[in-house]
Amino acid sequence: MDQHAPGQIDLDVVREMVSHITYSDHQEAQELILHALQEINEHFGWVSLEAAEIVAEHLGTTANRVYGLLTFYADFRTEPRGRHFMLVCHGMACYVGGSTALVDDLAERYGVGDGDTTADGALTVQVVDGCLGVCDRAPIVKLDDAYHGQLTPEKLNDVLQRAIAARQGEERVHGIDPHIAHVS
C-alpha cells in the first residue's frame, strides 16, 4: 500500500491521482470529495493539508470543507503512519474475547493508544470500534496486510516483535525500504 517514505506526501502523485477523478456537474464533484480523500488515504496512509487543498481545488470547493471531512470520518488520518500499521479490532466478539487486555498491554508495553505512533516510528495503532469481520478468531488484529487471531497480550507482543525484527533484518541486508506483507 504505502511505498513512500513515512511523513511525506508527494503532491505530484496527488495531482496525478485527482486528475483521474472526473465529474459532470458540481453535485457529482461534491459526491467525489470523500472518494478522492479515500484514495489518497489508502495510498499514503494519511492525508496532509496540502493534499486536501489539491482535492478542494480540483473539485471546486474549499480546503476548509475538505479538512472538515477528514477530521470527521474515522478512517482518515491527518498525521503520518508508522512503518507498521495495526488495526486492533474492538468489536463485541473481540471485546468479549479479551481485546481490552490487548489495548491495555499496548499502552503499557509500547506506550500507544488509539491513533498513536510509537516514538521510534515503528508502529501505528488504530482501535477499530466496528468489526474486522473475523469474529470466530476473536480477539483479532490486522497488522499491515495480515490477520492474527486468538491473541493474548503475549502472543500479540511476539507477533509485533517478529514483524519489527523482520523489518530491521531486511533493512540491514538490503538497505532499502522492504514491503512487509506477510508475517505469519
Partner: peptide, 9 residues
C-alpha cells in the same frame, strides 16, 4: 452510483 463511507457509525 456507488459511494463509500469513511467509518462513521
Amino acid at each position: 452510483r456507488l459511494r463509500t463511507g469513511g467509518g462513521a457509525y
